[in-house]
C-alpha cells in the first residue's frame, strides 16, 4: 500500500546542492540534484547532465548526510536533508531514523533496554539453557564422560591404590545410594576410583553419571555415613544436570555479551563480564546447595545417617580452613553447609 505521504513532494520542482563522484574515481564534482520541466536529474556546475532519473539507492543515518547512488555510474552526497525530502519524499527506513531522534521518547528506549536485560537475565537464559538441554542427545553426554575420564587419566589422575576391601565397601554404599537416588537422565550411574593427590579428599560427578572417588577420600574419611552423604550429593548433580546447565549458561552469556561488545563500549563490557562471572558463581553455589538437599534425602532413604556429612565439612574446615569469601567461590561456605546439613538431617 502506498501512503499519500510517500507521494509528498515527489513531483515538486526544486534542487539540492552537494558533491557527486563518478564510479571508481576520487574526483569531486560540485553538483546539484534538480527537478524541473525536463524531469529529475543530476547536473554539474556547468549545467551538463551527469545522469537522469531517481536515485537507485538513498541512505541516511540520523545526524549525518544523505547519500544517494545512481546505478553504478554516480554517487551524490548532500547535507541538505530537508531539500531532499521536499524533492524525493521521505525515505523508506524513516521509522528507524525517527526513533533515533533526540526526544523524551528515548527515555522509554533506555527503560526498554534495562527491562530487556532483566528479562533475558531472569527468564531468557533459563529458556535457552532448557532448550539446549532438551536438544542434547544422550550419547553426547556419555561421550563427555569417557572423553573427560581419558583426559584426566592422562594429565591428572593415576590408577587407584585402594585395597580390594575398601573398594568393595564403597561399591556397596554406591549400590545402596543408587537405588534411592533420583532418576539418572543419561544412562546408569557408574563408580570409578582414582588416585589424585592434587585435589585431596574429593569426589566429583561427570554429567553422564560417572562418579569419581579419590583414594584420599576413602583413606581420610573411612566412614560409610560420610561416603554415602557425598555420593548422594554427587548423584544429585547428575540427576539435576547441573554441569550441562552451567556449561550452556556460561556459553550463552559470553556469546550475548561478545555480540553487544561493540555497542556498549569497553568499560561497560568489562563490568558485564565481571558481573556475569560473579553471577555464574552464585548459580554454581545454588546448585551445590540444592545437591546437598537432595543428597541428604537420598542417603537417609538408603539408611545412612545424613548428619555425618556435617562432620566431613567440619573436618575439612579444620584441615584446610575456609577458602576465602563466599561470593568469590563456586561452593557455599563450609560453615553454611554444615548448618544446613544439620538442620535438614534433623528433619528427616
Amino acid at each position: 500500500m502506498t501512503l499519500p505521504s510517500n507521494h509528498y513532494g515527489q513531483n515538486n520542482f526544486g534542487a539540492v546542492d552537494g558533491y557527486a563522484y563518478a564510479a571508481q574515481l576520487s574526483t569531486r564534482v560540485s553538483a546539484r540534484l534538480l527537478r524541473d520541466a525536463q524531469g529529475l536529474r543530476l547536473v554539474d556546475q556547468a549545467g551538463e547532465t551527469l545522469c537522469t532519473g531517481a536515485p537507485s539507492e538513498r541512505e541516511r543515518i540520523s545526524g549525518g548526510p544523505c547519500l544517494m547512488t545512481f546505478g553504478t555510474a554516480w554517487t551524490f552526497d548532500t547535507d541538505d536533508i530537508q531539500g531532499v525530502e521536499l524533492l524525493l519524499g521521505p525515505s523508506d527506513d524513516d521509522w528507524l531514523s525517527s526513533l533515533e531522534v533526540w526526544h523524551p521518547r528515548l527515555f522509554a528506549v533506555v527503560a526498554g533496554c534495562l527491562i530487556g536485560v532483566l528479562i533475558i537475565w531472569k527468564w531468557g537464559l533459563d529458556i535457552l539453557v532448557a532448550g539446549a538441554i532438551a536438544l542434547t542427545p544422550t550419547g553426547f553426554v556419555s561421550t563427555i564422560d569417557t572423553g573427560n575420564l581419558a583426559a584426566m587419566d592422562r594429565f591428572l589422575t593415576a590408577p587407584t591404590e585402594l585395597s580390594q576391601s575398601d573398594q568393595d565397601m564403597v561399591r556397596d554404599i554406591f549400590a545402596a545410594i543408587k537405588d534411592h537416588a533420583p532418576y539418572a537422565p543419561y544412562g546408569d550411574y557408574t563408580l570409578e576410583f582414582r588416585k589424585a593427590d592434587v585435589i585431596g579428599p574429593n569426589a566429583f560427578a561427570l554429567p553422564g553419571g560417572t562418579v569419581v572417588v579419590t583414594d584420599a577420600l576413602v583413606n581420610d574419611f573411612n566412614d560409610p555415613n560420610i561416603i554415602a552423604g557425598i555420593l548422594g550429593h554427587e548423584l544429585a548433580h547428575v540427576s539435576e544436570r547441573h554441569s550441562l546447565r552451567q556449561l550452556y549458561r556460561s556459553l550463552s552469556v559470553y556469546v550475548l555479551i561478545a555480540m553487544m561488545a561493540g555497542d556498549v563500549g569497553p568499560i561497560l563490557e568489562d563490568v558485564l563480564l565481571e558481573g556475569s562471572a560473579l553471577a555464574s558463581l552464585a548459580y554454581s553455589r545454588d546448585h551445590e546447595a540444592s545437591a546437598d538437599v537432595i543428597g541428604i534425602k537420598t542417603s537417609h532413604a538408603a539408611g545412612y545417617d545424613p548428619a555425618a556429612l556435617a562432620e566431613f565439612f567440619e573436618q575439612l574446615t579444620e584441615d584446610y580452613g575456609e577458602s576465602g569469601p563466599e561470593w568469590m567461590s563456586t561452593h557455599p561456605s563450609n560453615a553454611e553447609r554444615i548448618e544446613t546439613i544439620k538442620k535438614l538431617a534433623a528433619e528427616q
Binding site: 533526540w102 528515548l106 528506549v109 533506555v110 553487544m260 561493540g262
Partner: peptide
C-alpha cells in the same frame, strides 16, 4: 558527529540488539 544524535542511534541499537537476542548487533 555529536553526542545527541549518536545517543539516539546507540540506545536504539542496544534495544534492538536485546530484543533480538543479539542478532541485530550486526546491523547495529
Amino acid at each position: 558527529g555529536n553526542a545527541q544524535t549518536y545517543f539516539g542511534i546507540w540506545i536504539v541499537n542496544l534495544l534492538l540488539t536485546i530484543v533480538t537476542f543479539g542478532i541485530y548487533s550486526a546491523w547495529a
